[in-house]
Structures are given as C-alpha cells and as structure tokens.
C-alpha cells in the first residue's frame, strides 16, 4: 500500500481508514490468526469507532484493517445498499479512504454486510466482512467465558443439538431461522451472524475470504476460501432452507431470499428479492416477474 497516496487523498487530520497504523497492524495479526484457524474466535483490542456498538463497529474495524486505496467497497444491510446503516458506513469509509464504491456485487473487492450474503456468487479475491453482534455460539448455554473456551478446546459441541431438539419438539421442525450454528472445517462451532439460514449454505466452500468482526465482544473470526462449513442438524431432520410460495414478483427469481411486501390492507402482497443488486441485475438482463409489467406502466405514466 502507498501510505503517502492514501493519506493525501483522505480527510485531513485522519489516518487512512480512520484507525492508526499500529491498531490496523494489531487487527491484521488477529485476522491472520483467524484465517489460520478457521472458525476460531480471536480476541482483539477493540477500538472506539465513530458509531455506537450495534451499528457494525466490529465489521468496520475489520474493513478498516484490510481496506486499501484500490479497493472497491460495497456495503449492505439486509441485502440493500441504501438503508441508513449501510449508507452511514459507506459514507464513513469514502471520507476516510476515498475508495470507489459500488452497489454491484461483481464489481466490489470488499463487501461489508449485515444480515445477508449476496445472491451473486462471490469469486476469488473478494472479501466479505460480516458485522457480528454475538460471536459465541455457546453463549445461550453457558455464560462463563472460561467454560465456553474449554468447550471449544475439547470440541464439546454435542449439547448444541439440545437446542435443535427443542426446536423440533416444540415446532415440529428446526425453527432456528437466523444465525444458524455451523461447524467450520470439521473443528470449530461458529455463529454465522444473524443471516437467514437461507444464506448458510453460501458460506460452504465459498471462493471469497469471509471475515467476521464483533466490536462489543472484541472477537474476530474467519472462514478462508474453500472451507467446509456444515450446518448442525439431525439425521432424520436434515438442514433445510426457507422456501416461498411465489417467485420474486419483479425479476421472477426462484433461487433468492425474498422479502414479503404488503401492497394494501386487503391482503394483497408480493415477494421480492431482498438483494436489490441481484434483482436489478436480473431485470436489466430481461427477467420479469408477476408484477414487473404493471410496474413498468406506472413508471411510464
């Protein structure tokens, strides 16, 4: 990285990407360790970021540690690039690094996300940074940090199935819909951050580097490219992703995570892709959905 170039292009008085170089080195060491031990939570000295905890400060610190002047940044929240959280974080990094930004998954070299994995498959060289509120998958079971560390050390994970058992007993199926527990590289139990379970299979053997940052709890963990990520399940109740009664009303996609949109107070509704970039790309390529024709007419009025 060219230090002089980076600093000259960004906001006066601030270091490139806000954090000082020593802090970034500390974070990079934590990230390297995390990459070396897939799924293992590496403690780090979390720094104050100009956003409150809960707004993705862990993800931001990871992004700040890996971003370079030539990166093209995409920030998403719930699949959209234009929500408050995504806009603030993107704006922050533009001011602090002057990097180019994009809404196109394909064009981005670095993507910070909250609650979704893009539908467009990622490729080698891309980095996906997840914002993580609670990193410890065993926390519900055991509040003591010393004990959860020991459980990780000894791979004492069988008890996670107690939670899944209870899901089935109470709901007839595994009802855990977000933050689905996974075993990484056959070794460490990991939380995927609150992405829908629909996205969980995308972590498996992904070509991109996936980094997870938890600011309040001061943990970084990683899934390196092409790493096995296996959701926990039962032999007679295998892992399954959500399904929807319809395709995307705008682009007709059958393979994407859909949000329900209420159209009127008479029960009218439609389902649309949560990933706005994916939906837009498909429409631009000529795909249509149930509602796309009337929408075009409205737009033409």
């Amino acid at each position: 990285m060219n230090q002089a170039y980076e600093t000259s292009a960004t906001l006066a008085g601030y270091n490139f990407a806000f954090l000082d170089e020593q802090t970034k080195r500390m974070l990079r060491r934590a990230i390297l360790k995390a990459v070396a031990i897939p799924g293992y939570q590496v403690p780090f000295g979390s720094r104050e970021m100009p956003l409150p905890y809960g707004w993705g400060t862990g993800g931001m610190q990871v992004t700040a540690a890996v971003i370079g002047a030539k990166d093209v940044l995409k920030v998403i929240d719930q699949g959209a690039d234009d929500t408050t959280n995504a806009v603030s974080i993107r704006h922050f990094f533009v001011r602090m690094t002057n990097v180019a930004t994009t809404e196109k998954t394909r064009e981005a070299t670095l993507i910070q996300t909250r609650h979704r994995v893009p539908e467009t498959p990622l490729s080698e060289g891309q980095i996906l940074v997840y914002q993580v509120p609670i990193p410890e998958p065993l926390r519900w079971l055991e509040p003591r940090e010393t004990e959860t560390r020991k459980m990780h050390a000894l791979s004492e994970y069988g008890v996670m199935h107690v939670k899944l058992y209870e899901d089935i007993a109470q709901h007839g199926h595994i009802s855990t819909a977000y933050d689905y527990p996974v075993l990484v590289n056959g070794r460490y139990l990991m939380r995927c951050s609150p992405i829908p379970k629909f996205d969980t299979p995308k972590l498996h053997m992904n070509a991109a580097l996936q980094l997870f940052g938890a600011g309040r709890e001061k943990r970084i963990y990683a899934v390196p490219p092409y790493t096995e990520v296996k959701p926990l399940d039962f032999e007679d109740h295998p892992f399954e992703v959500e399904r929807w009664p319809e395709d995307c009303a705008l682009c007709g996609a059958q393979d994407s995570f859909l949000d329900e949109v209420i159209l009127d107070d008479r029960g009218g509704r439609m389902f649309v892709c949560s990933d706005t970039d994916y939906c837009g790309e498909r429409r631009a390529a000529g795909h249509t959905g149930r509602m796309s024709a009337p929408y075009k007419e409205e737009a033409a009025e």
Partner: peptide
C-alpha cells in the same frame, strides 16, 4: 428445556443425532 431434551442431552453430547431415537 423440556423433559425430553433434559433426558437426551447426554446422548446428544455423545454424538447421537437421530431425533426419533432420542425421543
């Protein structure tokens, strides 16, 4: 957790992953 989960816990900790048999 339910009575069933309480009884099944040790078995699950040992790697039992068949819901029907646990029940």
């Amino acid at each position: 957790f339910s009575a069933g989960a309480n009884i099944g816990e040790r078995l699950m900790a040992l790697g039992d992953k068949h819901y029907g048999k646990l029940r």
